[in-house]
Computed example of a mutant assay.
Amino acid sequence: MSQPLPAPELKDRKILVVDDDRLNIRILSGILKTQGYALADADSGERALELYPEFRPDLVLLDVVMPGLNGFETCRKLKDTYGDACAPIVFITAKNESDDVVEGFSAGGVDYLPKPFQAKEVLVRIQTHLRNQLLTEQQKSLVDQLSKANAAKNKFLGMAAHDLRNPLASIRGLAEFLRDGVVGPLSADQLDLVQTIHAASQSMLTMVNELLDVATIEAGELKIDPAQHNLGDLIEKAVYLANIDAAKKNTRIEITPPASPLYPSFDPAKMQQVVDNLLSNAVKYSPPGSRITVVLHGDGRECSFGVKDQGPGIPENERDRLFKDFGRLSVKPTGGEKSTGLGLAICRKITEAHHGSITAANLPGGGCEFRVTLPLPA
């Protein structure tokens, strides 16, 4: 029966053969050289441990029964030393008892080669494991390239957002001066144009700020400064300010305080960003004249606050998009407000940075509830 043809992509892959029997080494070397592999050998587990860092094999063929360190012990030491970077280890053994097989896999081996060797079986098994190893290396290389490309994208996004923020803030500020009559009265048509400029610049500034937040978070540069604070106080202030905008839609936000004050550890500025976003979304997606409720709760181990709205709820087939970047749903704001699809993704990342969680659930009577849960200090 013919042997497998050499695989060009595996030529020069390095194999370390470990066996105290020189005859076995010669037999395996004779079989493997036909495939163009680079070979090294060791006659003991101790010698294999010395040779491994110098040779850096792509695969190890390791005899089980050897004086000194046996194959299982040698395998464990290699795995302990090199971890996930360790080459796949295939055991060589004349034994085929299930206990030995189980022990070999428990030690970290990926396969067995039984004695006496069958050339075709040896080559097919080794080609399979070398191909798997090659695929793993290629995947790691691809992941590294994608990570670098993603880091470059985040850097560019952060720079662009940062450079755009100041001019947009200036446009918004100048529009406010004109709107408020600082430079003189405006006609009705002029005021309408100025208000349009102000609204557009505010929307763009919100988008730029969210893009900058995403770039910062994805670059691993989100910094929080947690300390124990009264969560109820933060939410009461946020609700007071949110009610000013909610009044434009004849909507009211009400808060149900906890039975006793809650003092989780959080970064006030970052957590306010979460609260503001959830309140803004509740107003944005609820019909005019709605009532939005914020409920705080604590049980001694953790605390939470939930924002309940009277909007259309979350379509079940779109739930997986909810907390993803740019994860816009089919439901639309009820007052023509803009949405970037970034707000909830930012909320999730900030909450998780506080070792908390955020969930969303449709309510039986309509609308939905977004709930943030944070651990309480022991």
Rank of each mutant, 00 (worst) to 15 (best):
F55W: 04
L69D: 12
E46H: 10
H198C: 07
T206L: 09
E218C: 02
M207R: 03
R179M: 08
M66P: 07
N362W: 09
L135D: 14
E316F: 06
K140Y: 01
D225F: 13
L329M: 12
V124A: 10
G313C: 11
K324I: 04
T196H: 05
P88I: 04
P6A: 10
R172H: 10
S330G: 03
H229G: 00
E97D: 15
P57S: 08
N150Y: 07
P167Y: 08
V294D: 09
L113A: 13
Y240L: 14
Q310I: 01
T93A: 08
S286H: 05
S106W: 00
D21N: 15
A40G: 14
R301D: 13
E73C: 03
I253D: 03
L146I: 11
D299F: 07
Q190A: 14
K148F: 04
S170Q: 15
K140W: 00
S106Y: 00
L130G: 03
L123Q: 05
A188Q: 13
S280N: 12
G306M: 13
I31A: 08
Q195D: 15
V283E: 10
R321H: 09
V208K: 01
C347P: 10
S330I: 04
L164W: 05
V331Q: 11
P375L: 01
T256S: 13
G109L: 01
I314A: 03
A188F: 09
L186N: 14
Q272V: 10
L23Y: 07
T359G: 00
D267M: 11
A353K: 11
P375I: 02
E352F: 02
P333R: 00
L164E: 14
M66Y: 02
P185N: 09
L178D: 15
V60W: 00
I292E: 04
A107P: 00
G366S: 09
L113M: 07
L376C: 09
I15A: 03
L135W: 06
